[in-house]
Amino acid sequence: MTTVPRLPLADTLVGLLESLVPERAAAGGIRLGDVRLALPLELRLADDGRLLGNVSRWRWTTDFDAPPSRLTASFHAVQG
């Protein structure tokens, strides 16, 4: 059995946003402006005090899963 590593919330957010930016986004005519996320999120505080935030794992949830919290966030795209 493999365990899915739990990521700090910052890594999850950056990972999600990066996946929305195409490699050549700046060269194209149409660009992404704002991004709004609304996700179920598993939140937990790690022993070292970091807040872990992870989207639900890709499987059916069972009664043994804790109910996820919900994150809604909006981001504004800026030129690098």
Partner: peptide
């Protein structure tokens, strides 16, 4: 060098 990046505008969390 990433051509496009994001700035956080706002964020809400409904914590159960």
């Amino acid at each position: 060098g990433l051509p496009l990046t994001f700035a956080v505008k706002d964020l809400t969390i409904d914590l159960r």
